[in-house]
Simulated assay, not measured.
Amino acid sequence: MKKLILPFIFLLLFTNNAKASQWMTSFEDAQKIAIATNKFILVDFWATWCGPCKKMDSESWSNSEVQALMANFVPLKIDIDVERNLSSKFSIRSIPQVFILDPNGEIVLQTKSYMNKEKVMRVLKKYTYGNKLLQQEYLNYLKKESGDNALKIAEKYFDYSIYVDKEVKNDFLKLANKYLKITNKLYKKEGDKKKNSQRIGLFTDAYKYLIKGDYERTVKNLNDDFKEDKISPENKGFYNFLYFTAYNKLKDKDNARIWYQKLKTDKDSKNLILKSRRI
Rank of each mutant, 00 (worst) to 15 (best):
M121N: 07
E106N: 13
Q97T: 15
D102A: 12
T111P: 03
I95E: 04
I95C: 07
L101P: 02
N104C: 10
I92D: 08
E106I: 11
S91G: 00
P103R: 06
V108H: 00
L124S: 05
Y114D: 09
I95N: 04
M115P: 01
T111K: 11
M115I: 13
I100W: 07
Y129K: 07
L109W: 11
M115T: 11
S113V: 12
L101K: 04
F99I: 07
V98N: 04
I92N: 08
P96R: 10
E118N: 01
K112V: 15
G105Q: 11
N116T: 02
T111S: 10
L101F: 12
E106H: 12
K117T: 03
K119Y: 13
F90S: 01
N131W: 10
I107Y: 04
T128M: 09
I92V: 15
T128V: 07
Q97D: 02
Q97Y: 02
R93S: 13
K125D: 03
Q110C: 01
K112C: 07
R122V: 15
G130S: 14
M115Y: 09
P103G: 06
Y114W: 12
I107M: 05
I92T: 12
S94A: 14
K112L: 10
K117N: 05
G130K: 10
I92R: 06
G130L: 05
G105D: 13
V120A: 03
S113A: 12
N104G: 02
M115E: 08
Y114P: 00
K126S: 14
Y114V: 14
M115F: 08
F99Y: 15
T128Y: 06
R122M: 11
K119I: 15
F99L: 05
K126L: 13
S91D: 12
Y114R: 09
S113P: 00
G130W: 09
K125N: 05
R122W: 05
F99V: 02
Y127H: 05
Y129D: 07
M121H: 03
V98E: 02
F99C: 01
G130D: 14
L109M: 12
V108I: 11
V123P: 00
K119A: 14
V123F: 04
